[in-house]
C-alpha cells in the first residue's frame, strides 16, 4: 500500500500544473479585454495603457504565465482586477459561505439518502421502495435552478416563509444567537434545493450498494447465525455498503460545487460560485484562475481519496 500511496501523491503536482497552464492559456486565447469593464466609457488611450501596464497585462503571455506560476508557488494568486484585492483573500472570504451551503446540503442529503436507501433496499419492490425510487428518479431529472426558482416563488414569494435572497438580513445589527438563527433561516431554501438533488444520487447509490451487499456470503452467514434482520441490515449490510457510497459521493464533488454555483446565483448566496460567476462575466482573470485552482485541487484530493479507497478495497487495482 505504501509505494502506491507515494506514487499517487507524486502524480498530483503535474496534474495541477497542467490544469493551471490549460486555464491560463484558455483565458488569454479568448477575445475581450478586462480593461473596458474597469475603465468604462470615458478613458483615452494613455489612460488605458497606464492601467494595462500597472496590472502587468502588457507583458508577453509567457511572462505573465511564469509570473503567475511563481506567484502561486508562494501562495500569491495575484490581485483581482475588478476588486483590487488579493485573489486569495477574496476566495477565502467566500469559502465559508460555500462550505456552509454545500456542507449542510451534503449532510442533510447523506442522512436522508442513506436512511431511505437502506430502508428501500431492505424491501425491494415494497411500497416505500417504489415510492422513494420514483421520487428520486424524478428529482434526478430536475434542473437545480428550476427547482430553486419553484421553491423561491412558492415558499418565499407566495407564502413568505423564508427570506428570498442572501445569507444575513441587512438590518440585523446584533450577533450571537440572533445571527445564527438568521443565517439558518436564509440557509433553508438554497440548502434544500441543493440537498434534494443530492438525495436522489445518494439514495440510489445506497439502495444499490445495500442490495448488492445483502446477497454476499457473510450476510448469509450472519443470517444463518440467527442474528435479527434489523441488526443484519444496519450493522452488517449498511456498514459494508457505505464505503462505495462515500467514494462515489467524493467523486461527485465537482457536481456538488457546480450545483452550488447555480443555486448561489438563484438565491444570491455570497459564496464561491457567485464569485466565479461574477468574475467570469467581468473577465477578472486572476479570480477565475484562482477559483479554478482551488476547485481543481479540491477535486484532485477527492479523486486521490477515491482511488486510495478503491485500492484498499480491491487489491487488484493496487498492483496493476
Amino acid at each position: 500500500m505504501g509505494p502506491y500511496v507515494l506514487r499517487r501523491l507524486l502524480q498530483i503536482p503535474p496534474v495541477i500544473l497542467g490544469l493551471l497552464v490549460l486555464n491560463f492559456v484558455l483565458i488569454h486565447l479568448a477575445p475581450g479585454d478586462p480593461l473596458y469593464f474597469l475603465v468604462g466609457e470615458g478613458g483615452d488611450e494613455s489612460y488605458y495603457s497606464a492601467i494595462r501596464s500597472r496590472l502587468g497585462l502588457d507583458r508577453p503571455l509567457a511572462e505573465q504565465l511564469v509570473r503567475y506560476l511563481a506567484g502561486v508557488a508562494t501562495g500569491d494568486l495575484g490581485r483581482s482586477i475588478r476588486h483590487n484585492e488579493p485573489v486569495i483573500s477574496l476566495i477565502l472570504g467566500r469559502v465559508p459561505a460555500t462550505l456552509l451551503l454545500t456542507g449542510t446540503a451534503l449532510a442533510a442529503a447523506t442522512g436522508v439518502g442513506v436512511w431511505l436507501g437502506t430502508l428501500s433496499a431492505a424491501r425491494p419492490g415494497g411500497l416505500l421502495d417504489r415510492l422513494t425510487n420514483g421520487v428520486a428518479s424524478v428529482l434526478a431529472a430536475v434542473p437545480s435552478f428550476w427547482l430553486g426558482q419553484l421553491l423561491l416563488v412558492s415558499l418565499a414569494g407566495w407564502l413568505g416563509l423564508f427570506p428570498v435572497q442572501g445569507m444575513v438580513s441587512a438590518r440585523l445589527a446584533s450577533g450571537g444567537w440572533a445571527l445564527i438563527i438568521d443565517v439558518a433561516h436564509h440557509l433553508v431554501l438554497p440548502a434544500s434545493t441543493l440537498a434534494l438533488l443530492q438525495i436522489a444520487l445518494i439514495f440510489r447509490l445506497t439502495r444499490q450498494s445495500v442490495r448488492e451487499t445483502l446477497v454476499e456470503e457473510f450476510i448469509r452467514t450472519a443470517r444463518a447465525k440467527g442474528l435479527s434482520p434489523r441488526l443484519i441490515l444496519y450493522r452488517h449490510a449498511l456498514r459494508n455498503s457505505l464505503l462505495p457510497v462515500v467514494t462515489v459521493v467524493g467523486g461527485h464533488l465537482g457536481t456538488l460545487l457546480a450545483g452550488a454555483a447555480v443555486v448561489e446565483v438563484v438565491f444570491a448566496w455570497p459564496g464561491l460560485g457567485r464569485l466565479l460567476y461574477d468574475a467570469i462575466l467581468t473577465r477578472d482573470y486572476p479570480v477565475v484562475l484562482g477559483i479554478f485552482l482551488v476547485v481543481s485541487v479540491m477535486m484532485v484530493l477527492a479523486n486521490l481519496l477515491t482511488d486510495l479507497t478503491y485500492a484498499y478495497l480491491d487489491p487488484r487495482v493496487r498492483y496493476a
Binding site: V164, Q165, S169, A170, V266, R274
Partner: peptide, 21 residues
C-alpha cells in the same frame, strides 16, 4: 447604508416586496 448586488432581478424585486430591501 448597505448596498447589495442581487444577480437575479426577480429575486431583487421579491426582496423589496418583503421589506428585505
Amino acid at each position: 447604508v448597505i448596498f447589495k448586488v442581487i444577480p437575479q432581478p426577480s429575486t431583487a424585486v421579491l426582496a423589496l416586496e418583503q421589506g428585505e430591501a
